[in-house]
């Protein structure tokens, strides 16, 4: 069985980080696994964790009064689910629910924030990766705004 550090190293979000950097992350990380159709978080709850998905898929849903939930985005292997580690405590903005058996690395947001304080260079590297993932997601969401298939 691979060590937690090895599992961290294999995730695209952390790929290429040095062993010392990964070592620093180990205390913040844990492996999690959920069955299908499990609610991971609900809008308004405290978002204390970031999830680096290793397999499976998670639906990001918005709940609309009277009309029920609507899936606006699905995330899968290699994706990051979470609100970051700035301005804690953060709250989840949408609902998250697994669509199939899903495995992830959970990173504790408060732990990441402490890491960034004590090792600003390491924190900056993580933040860069987070921003990059976020921008990629925003780009795709913008495409989703135009009626992509309508014309």
């Amino acid at each position: 069985m691979p060590s937690l550090e090895e599992t961290l190293a294999r995730h695209p979000f952390l790929a290429g980080l040095g062993p010392d950097h990964l070592q620093l992350l180990v205390p913040c990380a844990s492996l999690v696994s959920w069955p299908a159709d499990q609610t991971l978080f609900t809008a308004g709850e405290e978002a204390g964790q970031l999830y680096l998905l290793r397999s499976g898929r998670v639906a990001i849903m918005i709940h609309r009064p009277r009309r029920g939930p609507r899936t606006v985005y699905t995330l899968g292997e290699g994706d990051v689910v979470g609100m970051g580690w700035q301005d804690l405590p953060q709250q989840w903005f949408f609902d998250g629910r697994t669509l199939e058996v899903t495995r992830a690395i959970a990173l504790d947001a408060a732990c990441l924030a402490r890491l960034s304080e004590s090792h600003p260079d390491r924190g900056y590297e993580l933040l860069q990766r987070f921003v990059r993932a976020l921008l990629g997601k925003i780009k795709l969401l913008k495409l989703q705004l135009v009626d992509f298939y309508g014309s």
Binding site: A59, T71, Y73, L140, L143, Q144, Y149
Partner: peptide, 23 residues
């Protein structure tokens, strides 16, 4: 297969089609 938005009975992907290319 992916769609732009869906009700919870859709267990497929949601998001633009280009999202799936890296998969």
């Amino acid at each position: 297969v992916t769609v732009d938005s869906a009700s919870p009975d859709w267990h497929g992907n949601v998001g633009v089609v280009t999202n799936l290319i890296p998969r």
